[in-house]
């Protein structure tokens, strides 16, 4: 099955590779957590890819952007969960993020924006814009430069699940 078909597929044959959860407050107490978690998880899931080092660098950069997005836009308590699974060439990262209405609105809009034909333009525009950074810029980059397929699903309770499918060996 092609990477593209696997991404579209609901994910029956995605095998779990890694799972963790930690309190949002603990996570958000230190920015360096993003980089540390991204690097650690990347190392774990990359060893059986063709070029493990290259893969780990790409994977950790992508995961780092997701985590930084979650860090920037976090709210109060609950647990942040990170789940990684694999189906052939595709790795799926699922972040479960506790949400209030405002935050849910942010993620919904950010994901909607990715479906237009002009994502690439949007990413460049966000990058070259003066002033404060667009908080959704990381998702734009993933869609454009990593050819990630991103979607949003309702999570349990007050949470959303951000799903990123990545075929990094082909991107």
């Amino acid at each position: 099955m092609s990477a593209d078909a696997r991404m579209r597929d609901g994910g029956a044959d995605f095998k779990p590779l890694f799972e963790m959860a930690l309190g949002v407050e603990a996570f958000a107490s230190n920015w360096a957590h993003c980089d540390k978690i991204a690097t650690y998880v990347a190392r774990l899931v990359s060893h059986n890819r063709t070029d493990s080092l290259l893969y780990a660098n790409l994977f950790s950069s992508a995961l780092n952007e997701l985590l930084e997005t979650a860090f920037r836009a976090h709210r109060g308590g609950g647990e942040l969960a990170c789940h990684v699974s694999r189906s052939g060439p595709v790795d799926r990262i699922e972040l479960t993020i506790p949400c209030d209405e405002v935050l849910r609105g942010f993620y919904t809009r950010a994901i909607e924006e990715l479906s237009g034909d002009d994502v690439s333009e949007r990413y460049v525009a966000a990058l070259l814009a003066d002033g404060a950074l667009d908080p959704g810029i990381g998702l734009l980059e993933l869609a454009v430069d990593y050819k990630a397929r991103l979607s949003l699903e309702p999570g349990d309770g007050d949470a959303v699940r951000l799903v990123a499918d990545l075929a990094l060996e082909e991107a």
């Binding site: 950790s60 952007e65 814009a129 950074l133 980059e141």
Partner: peptide, 14 residues
């Protein structure tokens, strides 16, 4: 350069 997040990239682009 092995990691460059978008915060730093935005700054660099500016």
């Amino acid at each position: 350069l092995i990691r460059l997040n978008n915060i730093a990239f935005h700054e660099l682009a500016g």
